[in-house]
Design a protein around this nucleic acid. Sequence first.
DNA 1: TGGGGGCATAAGCTGTCCTTATGAGCGAGG
DNA 2: CCTCGCTCATAAGGACAGCTTATGCCCCCA
Lengths: 307, 307
Amino acid sequence: MSEGGDEAYPRGGLAHRVPDLGALELLLAVARLGSLGRAARELGITQPAASSRIRSMERQLGVALVDRSPRGSRLTDAGALVTDWARRIMEAAEAFDAGAQALRGRRDSRLRVAASMTIAEYLLPGWLIALRALRPDTAVSLLAGNSAAVAERLLADEADLGFVEGLSLPAGLDGAVVAHDRLIVVTAPGHPWARRRGPLSAGELASTPLILREEGSGTRQVLNAALGGLARPLLELSSTTAVKASAVSGAGPAVLSELAVGEELASRRLVSVPVEGVRLDRELRAVWRTGHRPTGPGRELLGLTRG
Amino acid sequence: MSEGGDEAYPRGGLAHRVPDLGALELLLAVARLGSLGRAARELGITQPAASSRIRSMERQLGVALVDRSPRGSRLTDAGALVTDWARRIMEAAEAFDAGAQALRGRRDSRLRVAASMTIAEYLLPGWLIALRALRPDTAVSLLAGNSAAVAERLLADEADLGFVEGLSLPAGLDGAVVAHDRLIVVTAPGHPWARRRGPLSAGELASTPLILREEGSGTRQVLNAALGGLARPLLELSSTTAVKASAVSGAGPAVLSELAVGEELASRRLVSVPVEGVRLDRELRAVWRTGHRPTGPGRELLGLTRG
DNA sequence: TGGGGGCATAAGCTGTCCTTATGAGCGAGG
DNA sequence: CCTCGCTCATAAGGACAGCTTATGCCCCCA
């Protein structure tokens, strides 16, 4: 009765419980600039719009985010925390944007990149953000495919720079290693393997049912090759996220690319289990047509990946 | 002339170039379920709404995302990539939601947590997500503050479980180490320090101007303590993101929490420089009132953090 | 040859977010 | 002392995005 109607939080998807990207962007601007009005101006809206938007975000979250004063606005303690979490979302959005922009593949792009999936998914967006910071006017186009497709594009001079994962270099191409994609075995911290003394042997790994991506996926292929046979699936899931979620909830050990679980390892939601006697390393290479080492923006991007 | 008007991408903030969270959520559902209609039903909207929303997302991005057929919809190659990137955004949004929900701090929460900033910012959301997976009905409330405030809450029995960073345990509390917050020195891959043979000495670090958070920040305090004096700032910035961005763009070496740069290290936008002779490690502890080791949901959460 | 699942289109409604216009608190300077 | 300049809040109106219902077409299968 006396308990108004705002107790229960909104049902429905995440999107109804998390402020939209525009609101988060505004919050970050307020945090940085110290005033609603200045933040509004920076985003090209009016001060009342900003005021109302922040207010409705506070209502949605049920938390006061900014201390308003006649001399500006500062974040509350809770606001600082929310802002930090919001920043993570915006960083992911920035990566999305960088990738999507390249994917749009305008024909007038100054740099045409062809990349394999793992690289395009995990690494390229970060590189593109860095490249954008360095050379804001470089338009990049991206084509994603397997190693053979990447090689084909390069040889047909339809791409300036490629990225492939795999052991050998396709014919007609030169390359340089830019990163390593290491498959790792992970479990929830409560799993017996998390407390092992010594590393896992190849035999143990091969004989234990694992949470895996579906047959045919890249990581599954690498794992099969490394084990010299077929890995035994405990669960077969169609997305890396699903695999991670299962592992976190303790369903069993999973095998995943190291690139996919950085966050979970850092927060100890997952623990890495050492393995010996198996080559789970895979080299990720930048490649180009023999004798056509990239110049201009391609060289720039290459520099970002190799240091 | 002949080039319509959709060549230039929309001006304005990221929010105008990245689909909103609802659209991304829908895309993930389509990817998972293989049909627009099923995805619509899962999200509680109608099939035409889903159809139109996906279509406008494709228009916004300038890329076909799904192959529609009379027998369902599957992602295109580009769509799979976009979906992967979208998943990262949604994961960050999930962490935001978990944190914000706890921050709302309803009085009927079954588990009251008090945590220091670093932990609340980087680790706690992940733990809360894991806890939610394990015990969906556990309502958690979060209060963030410094170590003294956390101790005070616990001693006043206003919190069931605390998390503090620091060397010593406040009086009246028991605790257990759950993680380590290590400050690391990072540079852009092009920086001379990235190619060093041996580790950096404390003296070199102390005498080199660094990109740092502002005086008074937690990381700055730890750094000063470790160096036994004052670090020399090359730039003083007020957010971790700004520090990272400066370092990535090559402005100089920066000192940051390892937790803040996982992604950048993995993609080699930043490189970690080893340091010797300095204790940049800081232990992160779970704490509780002496003799009141948490039970129920608190024990559960503790288990997630310690394995 | 229906029936059912899939998707697309059209028309109408609603709510959100923007704008402009205005007012009120606080501090600095003539 | 008063006014200017900055801050934020409120009110009223308009534009647009996204939802719904209603429909149609396509394909497969029984």
